[in-house]
Design a protein around this nucleic acid. Sequence first.
DNA 1: ATTTCCTCCCAAAGCGCTTTGGATATCCGT
DNA 2: ACGGATATCCAAAGCGCTTTGGGAGGAAAT
Lengths: 343, 343
Amino acid sequence: MAVNLKQLAELLGLSQTTVSRALNGYPEVNAETRRRVLQAARETGYRPNRAAQRLATGKAYSIGMVMPIAPGIDSDVHFGEFLAGLAEEAVKHDFHFVLNPSAPEDEEVTFRRLAASGNVDALFLAYMRANDPRIAMLKSLSIPFLVHGRSIGESRDYPFLDIDNTAAFYDAARLLIQLGHQRIALINGPEYLTFSIRRQKGMLRALSEHGLTLDEALVQHSLMTDEHGYRSMQRFLQHSQPPTAVLCSSTVLALGAVRAINQAGLKIGEDISLIAHDDVLPMLKPENFSVPLTTTRSSLRAAGARIATRLIGGILKRGEYPEQELWRAELIVRASTGPAPQK
Amino acid sequence: MAVNLKQLAELLGLSQTTVSRALNGYPEVNAETRRRVLQAARETGYRPNRAAQRLATGKAYSIGMVMPIAPGIDSDVHFGEFLAGLAEEAVKHDFHFVLNPSAPEDEEVTFRRLAASGNVDALFLAYMRANDPRIAMLKSLSIPFLVHGRSIGESRDYPFLDIDNTAAFYDAARLLIQLGHQRIALINGPEYLTFSIRRQKGMLRALSEHGLTLDEALVQHSLMTDEHGYRSMQRFLQHSQPPTAVLCSSTVLALGAVRAINQAGLKIGEDISLIAHDDVLPMLKPENFSVPLTTTRSSLRAAGARIATRLIGGILKRGEYPEQELWRAELIVRASTGPAPQK
DNA sequence: ATTTCCTCCCAAAGCGCTTTGGATATCCGT
DNA sequence: ACGGATATCCAAAGCGCTTTGGGAGGAAAT
């Protein structure tokens, strides 16, 4: 059924060399010949044998991923969504994955082994922290890599894809301030992750630009689960001066926060405003909340797909991709934000 | 640095053939020779080139997995945990993954493509439903596969790994009945998944053996999130005759249920007893609940690892594995269960 | 008219392994 | 002592692709 290069070449009355070159876009082949080859390939459904390509080129055609198994990361809902994007794109190009579950303390060893194994052409890195030691390590490893997120405090000379978390939460906070809110709380992700740090920074900037400050009692860091969102919100509401608005680092956190708010008998968008960051989890759409949520939106799945594209493109040397990308999150206003209540 | 077969053979003064055979356990090689070969392989750190093996044997040395991207599955916390087990084991044997995200309606096409691609030696299947059409399809595909869970209503002649959900919830329900509970509720997973069906069945059996029945109003099916657990429990508590005990299909559901119970001012283990199924999520330990949870326990990660082992073992033809395994969940009693309250 | 230079194509080597089809040597029974 | 097992090893082919090192033929340059 499946044809191979040899058969295809025979069929066309050409040599394997020429067919291979035509298929792989090398210049030394006549335009008309290339057209014929491509057409024949299409008609016969020719698919190059990856094992043979791997052997011949020395490339692995697969990308390695160290899957952190620290509590609260591997089982994170956000992880599955990101992975789906990555995998979706990889499959299109017939790329494989080497998933390497690893506890944080073993990560360095895992990375080295993976890079040395020859089983992967590129590595992927996520869950960035401030002064993350892994990027220096990866630079020394002489294997291409791509970072999801950015470190802080490191030089910026490494390829990454990140969203502009600072700007996102700056925008969100500014909107709340413009609506008259003065006491704004923050339910953030884990404090050691850079996206959390940057979101807080963006929020702080907006506040200070308007002469406001951030009350430490109105900041909570935690794993991004429903339950933690609930508890954080509850704590805020018990404060002698509860906030009139809250920023949430995830719609998952917001889910809990909303519950706490409802339970306290407050009305979202009136008594208290809420903006959450929306990773576009198919399971949890902000427009389906009982009071539709104002969000800063950036699709996690799309980020996964983009990372796969860049990684694969780099390996295949097809096209040029920017080394660094910073996506802007969209601020989408729905019903959960409203003017600050009058005292 | 890395030696290949040829070099290793030269080093030993043997032919590649002999070395290869010694390494792969073929009989026609002298015991002493084999010892020497194995030792040399160890000392030089010889690792066979997978691409070459793939080309020579036609095996892919990788296992395919269709990752369901239906809402509430891919982003499920349980998914990441299971995947970690699978990946952990695969990495040990230098096996790759081909993750294929696919919407349910495209699954059949995806499976066929995957099987035909030659990129995988075996397929893995999960999230089983009653009369699941996928198993008949896979049987027709002439590629080994392994099912996590079991279908219902299909003939049983396919390889699977499942836990005895019926027995688990039978045991759990029986314990509650022995403690004097008469009105027992169930917070279950999605109703179309077989584990949910079986758990309910087990519970029903225990009830009917003691002349009790299951009030339909005391059964809830939903995605296994905190939030759904909360809502389900709330609904039960609003009932004119609320239950005195509850079974939960996941500790994640239990998390929400506990919150609803606390909120109602009831004491767990006294006013209301609770047993949850514990998948051993590292993030959510039943012993860390404010009132430690009685559970039926079976590690999801271990199941993932076992499935990888069986799949890989089958491909490599190393050792024999049972075709079908049914794991027994352990019933672990903690403080969340107590005698039924006196009226 | 001869040389040089492209353009376009090909034969063959090689990637590192497995496997087929012997070869050689030893040992057996008769 | 001799044909036939048996045990142990090897040379070489082959998996399906990429890539090196030409080579033929025509256009351009001298």
